[in-house]
């Protein structure tokens, strides 16, 4: 688990079965599959029978745990080709979910963050959700100028695909937007760029 000095970045948990819940929904992406496997191993047969797994095979690092996940006798395992599809699948599931449901999220920060936006829109509380980060800490960045969201940003300076400005990625994470903030890199002195660096990926 990466330690950073970024206070606004979420503090992530470790996925373990929440025994107080009656229905379990586990959504993961890429290398998050490893945490899902560990979670399902820790569950009782009754909990597994009450568990739905949503898994996206999209991965920044190329990890795929689908075969391992298929070994468990869960109520349902739904597989999605992209993270965006998995988040839509989560939305559709939560639309009819009842009180007593517990949500487990694991994968990249962008996947966890956008899934959390959906969970929050259904009024889920922090004591109903566990989040475990997996894989690289690539950042999801929101452009303060055009509002474009860029996934998997790895460097401090990058060109916004939305407005083509050179952005500097600030160490400020917004839970509401589920993204770090990007602002114009040479706003003080036009043309004078700060030094580029690889982010804490």
């Amino acid at each position: 688990m990466l330690i950073t000095g970024i206070k606004s970045r979420p503090v992530y948990d470790e996925l373990t079965p929440m025994a107080s819940g009656l229905i379990h929904l586990a959504a993961g992406q890429g290398s998050g599959g490893k945490a899902l496997v560990r979670l399902l191993r820790a569950m009782t047969p009754e909990q597994l029978a009450a568990t739905t797994v949503l898994y996206s095979t999209e991965s920044f690092t190329g990890q795929n745990y689908l075969i391992d996940l298929q070994q468990f006798k869960v109520r349902d395992l739904a597989v999605f080709p992209t993270n965006a599809d998995a988040v839509s699948g989560l939305d559709a599931y939560l639309a009819t979910a009842k009180m007593g449901t517990r949500l487990y999220l694991t994968g990249s920060e962008g996947f966890i963050g956008t899934s959390m936006q959906v969970a929050t829109s259904y009024g889920m509380n922090r004591d109903e959700v566990l989040r475990e980060h997996a894989g690289s800490f690539v950042r999801r960045v929101w452009c303060a100028h055009c509002g474009h969201y860029s996934e998997n940003v790895t460097h401090r300076i990058f060109e916004c695909p939305g407005c083509e400005l050179n952005l500097i990625v600030r160490d400020h994470y917004s839970g509401r937007l589920a993204a770090f903030q990007g602002v114009k890199a040479d706003s003080e002195v036009p043309g004078e760029m700060p030094e580029n660096e690889e982010l804490d990926t």
Binding site: G21, M99, G100, D127, E128
Partner: peptide, 10 residues
């Protein structure tokens, strides 16, 4: 509420 799986914050 606990028996039905509600969490305390609700």
């Amino acid at each position: 509420a606990h028996a039905l799986g509600w969490s305390d914050s609700n």
